[in-house]
């Protein structure tokens, strides 16, 4: 197997990416309902747009009962209630931010999985990028020190010994 084959193989793989996507494009064309077509399953909740908003928002929220699950996935009864509450708020026209404020005024910031950017979380949000920045600084300084470091000079006897060692079969 030559690398030409590998090249071709990989290109095929890359192209294979697009095929399922293309298949999607064609398959989402709506089918014309015929009189004996089976009934279509209805979405669980009538308003699909609100459901999508709810799903995205509830992934940002912590279930206060099963505390290490997102509100979107938690099976707890209170979680179901809270999702319904959010649904009702959204139907009443509240924005995402208003929904979040509604919940944090009742449960505190604890319920947000994405910590808000306030003084108590400055370190949290800035930290990682500061670490990287600090690391880059360390990198620069280490390299500057390296450049001035000279390796020990090697004499001809050492070179000959090295050549002999390289000759030895493993």
């Amino acid at each position: 197997m030559t690398f030409r084959h590998i090249q071709q193989g990989l290109l095929t793989v890359f192209l294979a990416f697009s095929l399922p996507a293309l298949a999607n494009e064609s398959a989402t064309a709506t089918t014309i309902a015929s009189p004996d077509a089976p009934p279509t399953a209805q979405p669980l909740f009538a308003d699909v747009a609100i459901e999508n908003r709810l799903t995205l928002l509830s992934r940002e929220l912590r279930c206060v009962v099963c505390q290490n699950e997102a509100l979107s996935e938690s099976p707890a009864e209170l979680a179901t209630d809270m999702r319904q509450e959010i649904r009702d708020l959204m139907k009443a026209g509240k924005t995402d931010q208003e929904v979040l404020t509604f919940l944090t005024s009742r449960y505190g910031d604890f319920v947000l999985f994405r910590p808000p950017f306030k003084p108590v979380t400055y370190l949290l949000w800035i930290g990682p990028f500061a670490f990287l920045g600090f690391g880059v600084l360390v990198w620069f300084m280490a390299l500057r020190a390296r450049r001035t470091f000279q390796s020990a000079p090697v004499n001809s006897a050492q070179l000959a010994a090295a050549a002999r060692l390289l000759e030895e079969k493993p």
């Binding site: 206060v64 209170l78 209630d81 809270m82 509450e85 009742r106 449960y107």
Partner: peptide, 10 residues
């Protein structure tokens, strides 16, 4: 359970 949520009951 609405009142519970209003009071932050968990």
């Amino acid at each position: 359970g609405r009142v519970g949520i209003d009071w932050g009951v968990t």
